[in-house]
Design a protein around this nucleic acid. Structure first.
Length: 207
DNA sequence: CGACCGATTTGCT
DNA sequence: GCAAATCGGTCGT
């Protein structure tokens, strides 16, 4: 068994039920710690929004492993996003870390995102990875056993935990699997799932 | 092997 | 408000 027993136990349940538990938890990596304020749950094969929707591939294989590991992916040719693997081993599920508040290593975080106010340092899933200096080399690390660590806090007060549709998904059924701490200034701006977005074929206008 | 697309961010027409 | 940037994963030819 790989994996921190604590995290496997605490995060091994159904992903949409476990996801809110990550609100208020603190992730530490490379000199920076962030208190998580916004997350999204991604589930098993029947979730069209999940990277694991079409089965196991080299990229998403970490999602199939034990809970409590970090799943990092690279997207849009320039951004990284970080997830915490949840659910029972063998079932693909992960929670995307969408936003948080830098609570330690503020100086380092500012250097990694020059020109931004503290509130915006980790507001957004790719921005959050930037303040950590996180990349694919950390994909799959056990969050309970090394320098990259996740500390779960107390269960968040249900009265301030809100949920809504996930951000940026196209063609997914509306599962309200985005969770955030209401009123927290570091929660990312809500962008509807870009319904009218056209395919950006540069050839079309390039004549 | 080639084409298309993306759990985004940023800057500007 | 909209489009470019930029490249690995995934799927189709």
């Amino acid at each position: 068994m790989s994996g921190s027993p604590d995290l496997v136990d605490l995060l091994g349940g159904a992903v949409h039920e476990v996801a809110p538990l990550l609100l208020g938890s603190v992730l530490s990596h490379r000199g920076v710690a962030v208190r998580i304020t916004e997350v999204e749950a991604y589930g098993a094969a029947d979730d069209p929004g999940s990277h694991a929707h079409r089965g196991r591939t080299p990229r998403n294989s970490v999602m199939f492993g034990p809970a409590g590991r970090l799943y990092v992916y690279f997207t849009y040719g320039m951004h990284h996003c970080a997830n915490v693997v949840c659910g029972p081993e063998g079932e693909a599920a992960a929670v995307l870390l969408r936003a948080g508040e830098v609570v330690s290593g503020l100086e380092t975080a500012r250097v990694r995102r020059p020109g931004f106010g503290d509130r915006d340092l980790a507001r957004g899933p790719a921005r959050l990875c930037t303040v950590f200096g996180l990349d694919l080399s950390s994909n799959g690390v056990d969050l309970g056993a090394g320098p990259t660590r996740l500390e779960l806090g107390d269960t968040p007060d249900p009265s301030i935990v809100f949920s809504g549709p996930r951000v940026g998904l196209r063609g997914a059924p509306e599962r309200p699997w985005r969770f955030w701490l209401t009123g927290d200034p570091t929660v990312s701006a809500y962008r509807p799932a870009t319904p009218g977005r056209r395919p950006q074929r540069s050839d079309l206008r390039k004549r």
